[in-house]
Amino acid sequence: MGPLGWLFDATLTVAGYDVLWREIVGNLFGLAAAVGGLRRRVWAWPVGVVGNVLLFTVFLGGVFHTPQQTDLYGQAGRQVFFVIVSVYGWVRWRGAQRAAAAGGDADAPAVVPRWAGRSGWLLIGSVAVVGTAACAAVFSALGSWGPWADAWIFVGSMLATYGMARGWIEFWLIWIAVDAVGVPLLLSAGYYPSAVLYAVYGAVVLYGFVVWWRARDTAAAADAVDERVPTA
């Protein structure tokens, strides 16, 4: 068995429960991506994609015959959309970083945080309500575990990832709402490493929200100073 085969099948026994190593590794990549997003670094996107690929196979427990044997279609499906949105965010942040480098600031963060505003919140609210209801109906038909909770985690995760790509500070708040639902769902379904990492994400997300908010205030103050400085 090669290293990839070992990673796919290897388990760790914790408190009498078999846990897949790829669930642990996938969530650690996700945590690293969250830290990279907090620091507004482009590498957060490809690192997150690696975790998404691993976790896709984890949450289809019945399909891939994992120890949990439980299919969370929302959790699995969101990994696919994570990859799609991550490519968008990767390209967007990379372009901003190149523009900053061309302007003489090679070490500038890839995005300047900003509030989503009224139009952004209208988009977030409408997609959250309509998307969750629609996905819950689909997941119920598929037999997903906890379809309503799974649907919100799916839709909320997409909104949060899109908000991160756009540089919206509110995306951190959406992640908090996702984590609040995700921890009990994953515990009830037996995905204990993911539940623990969700709780850790909660602390990182709260810190990230404060960091981005302060970065926005700093950028706004710098813009105000620039406007007051007379040009020659």
Rank of each mutant, 00 (worst) to 15 (best):
R228V: 08
G125H: 12
W43R: 03
C135T: 15
Y162I: 04
F56A: 09
A100L: 11
G117L: 11
R78P: 01
L72G: 04
Y17A: 14
Y201G: 06
G156K: 00
G51P: 10
W172C: 00
L4F: 15
L38Q: 13
N27M: 14
P193F: 03
D9C: 11
A160I: 01
P230E: 03
D217C: 13
G202D: 12
G95W: 07
R40F: 02
E227Q: 15
S144Y: 03
D179W: 03
Q69Y: 09
Y73M: 11
Y201D: 10
A106I: 06
Y201H: 01
G62H: 10
W148T: 13
V83K: 08
A189S: 09
Y88A: 13
G77F: 03
I153A: 15
S144I: 09
N27G: 15
A215I: 01
A128T: 13
W168F: 15
D217L: 15
V112R: 15
A165N: 03
V200Q: 00
A33M: 07
A221Y: 04
A189Q: 02
F29T: 04
W121R: 00
A15D: 08
A110V: 00
F82L: 04
A189I: 03
G131F: 05
A141W: 11
P147D: 14
A151R: 00
G30F: 07
V155W: 03
S188P: 08
A101Q: 13
D9W: 05
G95V: 01
V127K: 06
G120V: 00
P3T: 02
R216G: 05
G208T: 09
P46V: 10
G5V: 05
V225R: 14
A165K: 03
L187V: 10
A44M: 13
A141L: 04
V205R: 02
W115K: 11
M1N: 10
Y88W: 15
A76Q: 02
L159M: 10
T57V: 07
W21C: 10
D18P: 07
L54H: 06
V63S: 08
R114L: 03
C135V: 14
D9V: 14
D179A: 05
A220F: 01
A180F: 15
A100F: 04
D179I: 09
G48C: 10
Y73A: 10
A220Q: 14
D18S: 14
G167Q: 10
F154M: 12
V204T: 02
Y201N: 05
T66E: 08
D223N: 11
G77I: 02
G51S: 11
A33D: 06
L12V: 10
A34N: 01
A96L: 13
G48N: 01
V42M: 03
L185T: 05
L60T: 05
A133N: 07
W45T: 09
E23H: 07
A15N: 12
W6T: 09
L186K: 02
N52S: 15
D9F: 12
V155L: 09
R118M: 04
G5H: 11
F8S: 10
V129F: 08
M1C: 09
R216E: 12
V229F: 05
G125W: 11
L55F: 05
L7D: 10
L54R: 02
V14W: 07
A116E: 02
F209L: 15
I24R: 12
F154W: 12
T231K: 13
I176G: 08
V85L: 14
A32L: 12
V50K: 08
